[in-house]
Design a protein around this nucleic acid. Sequence first.
DNA 1: TAGATAGTTGAGCAAACATTCAACTGATGG
DNA 2: CCATCAGTTGAATGTTTGCTCAACTATCTA
Lengths: 120, 120
Amino acid sequence: MGKNEYLCDCNVIHPKVVEQVLKNMPSSTTFEHLAKFYKLLGDSTRVRILFALDQEEMCVCDLANVLHMTKSSVSHQLALLRENRIVKMRKSGKEVYYTLDDDHVVKTFEVGLLHISHKD
Amino acid sequence: MGKNEYLCDCNVIHPKVVEQVLKNMPSSTTFEHLAKFYKLLGDSTRVRILFALDQEEMCVCDLANVLHMTKSSVSHQLALLRENRIVKMRKSGKEVYYTLDDDHVVKTFEVGLLHISHKD
DNA sequence: TAGATAGTTGAGCAAACATTCAACTGATGG
DNA sequence: CCATCAGTTGAATGTTTGCTCAACTATCTA
């Protein structure tokens, strides 16, 4: 996502609107963090993982069975979620147990589900 | 995302947990809709567009100037958001004005911003 | 100690995706 | 009618990304 400082190819039509909106825009970094967060929720496998973990603490094999996927595939996605502190893990014997690590994720879910049920 | 009915490569370790979670899991379609919704918010350009439109109704050229991008690029993203009924358009003369078409988007934003400010 | 099971990890690959470029439509004004 | 400006659209391109496969670590148990 390395952005150049390229200019747009058209003129401002309503200078006051542009000026006003520009004044209120948060930094690019803020938007990138926000987009990154939503992108993590923007995959059906990860959404299903989070939904499952929202109900129960689960180990990788059980998750794989619930999702009908390979351990590897699930583990890759869990690693991604872990790196971004959306889930956390706990080791116990041979197993690794995962749980949600973020209250906001649950709230985002609720709003998202509301959106879905409203539109489709 | 055409998923096969392939099996996972490991055994169930806690049958009761798996059974219980499986019982509560919504359909794959529901998760795909949900993921699709989040994926639409999972891009910094689109997030910036939505943030701008949350403040003011804007035409494509003004948006392009606010975002420092080409009309084409902005228009492509607006088309995507329009197809998914997240923004709507209104024609007036040569210009096309866009606004948000979904209350839930705003609420999702709030939760997302909360998440960001909490973690970083 | 050897074998089996739980889980992780990196490389490879195909599909999805964001931006660019160029050609196009359509409305305005001289 | 012609030139210009706002906006859209499709093809091309380079990047991102999700899954697979195979190799690996670690823990338990016979």
